[in-house]
Amino acid sequence: MSAKDHVVFVVDDDVGMREALDELLTSAHLNVVTFGSAAEYIGFAKPALPACLILDVELPDINGLELQRQIAAEQHPQIVFLTGHGDIPSSVRALKAGAVDFLTKPFSESDLLGAVHIAIAQDREARLQREKVATLQQRLDTLTPREREVLPLVVKGLLNKQAAAELGISEVTLQIHRGRIMHKMEADSLADLVRMAGALGV
């Protein structure tokens, strides 16, 4: 991995632990930023890079699981939890809420690095996905109101004749709208357009 294509956030109140994580991740060629508390992490201006958050469950200001719940609504990096005593209910909760892994201290190097790489990869994928959707959304925004009406009928699989009848327009007019939609959405085929509509939730 290159220097600027990812970041690993570490939140742990124990200085020794923070340093050790920094050291280990750095030695594995990862970019690391460490924080002593959840508040510090929240207040940090995060770069727009694929990221992983290594979160200690027992934080002084807020429980790691609680932090996970709080940031769930936002776009946040994938989380790898660390805990001094891994109780099963907490780990189940964390994993159900989307954590990549839940590691008990002391953890093995391979478990941690494996989890971090998975997290970064997932975050990268998620970011790409979000970008794609954003692009499609931009294209969707260029459609006229009539075209917005035609689009769902087309992707639903209606024949031109049926769609035209539904909207009370001629088949020819409908075909013109459809052509414009394909063009504006940069769709290669009807199948492509259906996929796009699915991603946009149309």
């Binding site: 020794g16 050790a20 050291e23 002391p106």
Partner: peptide
Amino acid sequence: NQPLAAVIA
């Protein structure tokens, strides 16, 4: 556990 985990890491 805390120092031990740091030692291992």
